[in-house]
Amino acid sequence: MKKERRKFSASFKAKVAIEAIKEQQTIQELAVKYELHPTQINTWKRNFWIMRNPFLPRRKARQRMTPKRRNFIPRLGSYRYRWIS
């Protein structure tokens, strides 16, 4: 049987992120306390910080790999590139 995915409210995420930003406890201690993965806490912390500080640069969206870009392979030792058709 498939385990149901946990969903967290925005207020809970903000609470955990604020505690992580305060640095009174380590990320690992917070992870054990709230039964979360440390990477998840760091992600919420980073997102909270970006949302509260609009002057921080945001990441650029990834470009989708089109079939034309996917088939473009640079040839080693050559100044020219080759398109695979």
Rank of each mutant, 00 (worst) to 15 (best):
S11I: 12
H37Q: 13
R75S: 12
G77H: 11
N42T: 02
K33S: 06
E29K: 15
K60T: 10
N42I: 07
I18Q: 14
S9Q: 00
K7M: 11
A31L: 06
P54E: 04
N42K: 11
A14S: 13
Q24V: 04
A20V: 03
R64I: 13
I73T: 13
F8R: 12
F55G: 06
I18H: 10
Q24I: 03
K33I: 00
V16Q: 07
N42S: 14
T26L: 04
K60E: 15
A10F: 04
E35W: 01
N47R: 10
P38D: 09
S11R: 13
P57Q: 06
R5N: 10
K7S: 11
Q63G: 09
I84R: 04
Q40C: 05
T43S: 12
V32M: 11
L30N: 03
R58I: 02
R80T: 10
R46K: 12
Q28A: 13
I84L: 10
Q63V: 10
A20L: 06
W83P: 00
V16D: 02
N47T: 03
P54M: 01
N42H: 06
I41P: 03
A17P: 00
R75N: 07
N53K: 00
M65Q: 06
P57F: 05
K45T: 03
N47Q: 14
E4S: 09
F12T: 05
I21N: 12
W83I: 11
L36R: 15
I50Y: 08
K22S: 12
R62E: 04
G77D: 01
N42Q: 14
H37A: 12
I73H: 13
F12D: 07
Y81S: 15
K33R: 08
Q63P: 08
M51H: 04
R75F: 06
L30P: 02
N53Q: 08
P38C: 08
Q28E: 00
M1T: 08
K68V: 07
N47K: 04
N71Y: 01
E19L: 13
E19G: 08
Y34L: 04
A31I: 03
K13T: 02
L76W: 02
R59W: 07
